[in-house]
């Protein structure tokens, strides 16, 4: 440790020395969080409870201009994405173009069966592709998978992983996130418990709706610097885990 840092931290140590007697032990301050109850609640949630959460999610989402689409199957989810692609106006690009997270669930979406968007350019954010940045800039729609979503605040949780970069949900004008209903959590506490269980949480993001600002006379405007519109496509019927590409919590 360099001298400057040592001096800095020494000064801080000196500043708090008076709290010697009152402070709790370091191990207590850093005590690990017991997540078992939250993880259990998540894992053991029955279909009825899930439906109630879904209801909450849809209600909360509507308050945030986050458009939800309930699709029983992957086929219907693919169709839904095609419809959004066809009906959305482009902003920075002349023609619509998709950039998709390189995620098994998205790979399993039968987008090829959607004739209407057969000519729409589709790119995957593969790790080895040096053009990902440019392709993202050229895309009008970014499609990602929500690792989890939070019903109480209509939020999706997204971990940065190889092939699943941060800009896909940020740079294109429209963001579509695909969620498996079984990955819907009740609240932020539950979602944090799931994040803690992950090995690789070097970078992660919570997203609740399209970007917005109310800086001019407190008038709410959607589309500040991030996407103008956000869609959450919820696949409501169980999906084969191999497709999902991530284990549903057990």
């Amino acid at each position: 440790m360099d001298d400057k840092r040592t001096a800095f931290l020494d000064r801080v140590r000196m500043a708090v020395q008076d709290s010697e007697e009152t402070r709790i032990a370091w191990s207590e301050l850093l005590a690990p969080c017991d997540d078992s109850a939250r993880l259990n609640a998540f894992a053991q949630r029955g279909p009825d409870e899930q439906q109630i959460l879904l209801q909450t999610l849809v209600e909360q989402a509507s308050l945030l201009h986050l458009q939800t689409h309930l699709c029983p199957t992957l086929d219907q989810a693919a169709q839904c994405i095609a419809e959004i692609t066809l009906t959305s106006a482009t902003e920075f690009t002349a023609e619509p173009a998709l950039i998709l997270h390189d995620h098994p669930l998205l790979r399993a979406l039968p987008l090829h069966a959607q004739a209407a968007i057969n000519h729409t350019p589709r790119h995957w954010t593969g790790n080895r592709d040096p053009e990902v940045r440019n392709r993202t800039l050229a895309a009008s729609i970014g499609v990602t998978v929500a690792d989890w979503a939070i019903a109480e605040s209509a939020t999706i949780v997204q971990m940065t992983r190889p092939g699943q970069p941060r800009s896909t949900s940020l740079v294109p004008s429209i963001h579509i996130a695909v969620l498996l209903l079984s990955h819907l959590t009740a609240n932020l506490a539950e979602a944090y418990a799931l994040v803690r269980r992950e090995q690789n949480c070097d970078s992660w993001t919570l997203i609740s709706g399209p970007s917005k600002t109310a800086d001019i006379e407190a008038v709410m405007v959607h589309g500040a610097h991030g996407p103008k519109a956000m869609h959450l496509v919820v696949v409501t019927e169980p999906v084969n885990d191999a497709h999902a590409g991530f284990a549903v919590a057990s």
């Binding site: 790790n127 940045r133 190889p162 070097d202 970078s203 919570l206 997203i207 609740s208």
Partner: peptide
């Protein structure tokens, strides 16, 4: 009065090897 702000991101380092952005 927001349950959460639109974006909350957690970062603590440069992009990992092979990450296409960051």
């Amino acid at each position: 009065l927001q349950k959460l702000s639109t974006y909350v991101s957690f970062v603590g380092g440069p992009r990992r090897k092979g990450d296409p952005d960051g």
